[in-house]
């Protein structure tokens, strides 16, 4: 009996060691490139911020367009997320699948699709150009590309945040005189607020890091990701490193914001 128990304990130790080793290997694969990049380019990148006007301008453009794309997603995507969360969207399953599609296709392909749909030769692109919103080679194009690849993330996270708010709170608000929109605004919005902000932060971070779709639509003006690629192909790895390192540092900001949001207590979850 005791030898069986010892063999069991031995197998358990081997399995535990295997799990730890596997986790360490994965963490090393994920963390090592970031650490090396920051060590090689981090300080010089920060130091270069003062002198490198093109880098500053690319970062500013990235922040502006990512913020614009996030705002557009917030305004247009929150009602959609609400309808999906409350199962009130006609053909909700189809809409959900459509929203997942941009996340699955390669981003340069997304750029090509956008070019076909909104490029100069397309009817939509012509109409937008007449409104002063030319898509190719413009800020509009950058925002559109960011929106295409990152808005599904916002809608998905916002949908989860709204679904966590017990629908019966709205039912009570309705019996107290609220219309459906007023109940959603007075009750669900504040209760899901933390989750909606987290969804916006995820989207903003994803938009900042987008390259593939943007580079097809708008090479110039350059966002930070395009600038790092431009320097890598034109001047080599050393020239691209400071830009790349600054982008990594920039990604830490939303990560910290997300952590602090998740640390808070969730409101409005279903009563048990």
């Amino acid at each position: 009996m005791s030898s069986v128990a010892e063999r069991g304990r031995g197998a358990h130790r081997v399995a535990a060691a295997g799990v730890v080793l596997g986790a360490l290997l994965l963490l090393a694969l994920l963390g090592l490139p970031i650490v090396v990049l920051l060590l090689r380019g981090g300080l010089s990148g920060l130091a270069q911020l003062g002198a490198d006007r093109e880098l500053r301008s690319a970062l500013w453009l990235t922040a502006q367009t990512a913020t614009a794309a996030t705002l557009v997603a917030g305004v247009l995507g929150t009602p959609l997320a609400y309808l999906l969360a409350r199962d009130r969207m006609p053909a909700g399953a189809l809409v959900g699948a459509l929203l997942d599609l941009p996340l699955l296709i390669p981003h340069p392909v997304a750029g090509m699709a956008l070019l076909l749909a909104f490029g100069r030769a397309s009817p939509a692109g012509t109409a937008l150009a007449q409104l002063g919103l030319a898509v190719v080679g413009s800020r509009t194009g950058i925002v559109l590309a960011m929106l295409f690849v990152a808005a599904p993330l916002y809608v998905s996270a916002a949908r989860e945040a709204i679904a966590r708010v017990d629908e019966r709170y709205e039912s009570v608000a309705r019996t107290l005189g609220d219309t459906p929109i007023r109940a959603a605004w007075r009750i669900t919005r504040p209760l899901a607020g933390r989750g909606l902000v987290a969804a916006a932060v995820v989207m903003w971070a994803r938009a900042v890091s987008e390259f593939g779709a943007i580079v097809i639509l708008t090479y110039n003006p350059k966002v930070a990701s395009v600038l790092s690629y431009d320097r890598f192909t034109g001047e080599g790895l050393d020239a691209a490193l400071p830009v790349a390192a600054v982008l990594v540092i920039l990604a830490l900001v939303p990560l910290l914001v997300l952590r602090s949001l998740r640390a808070g207590t969730a409101l409005g979850e279903p009563a048990r």
Partner: peptide, 15 residues
């Protein structure tokens, strides 16, 4: 709609 029915409701978990 419920906002025009003039009905109050109290759920088991108060909500």
């Amino acid at each position: 709609p419920p906002e025009r029915r003039g009905v109050g409701i109290v759920y088991q978990h108060a909500l």
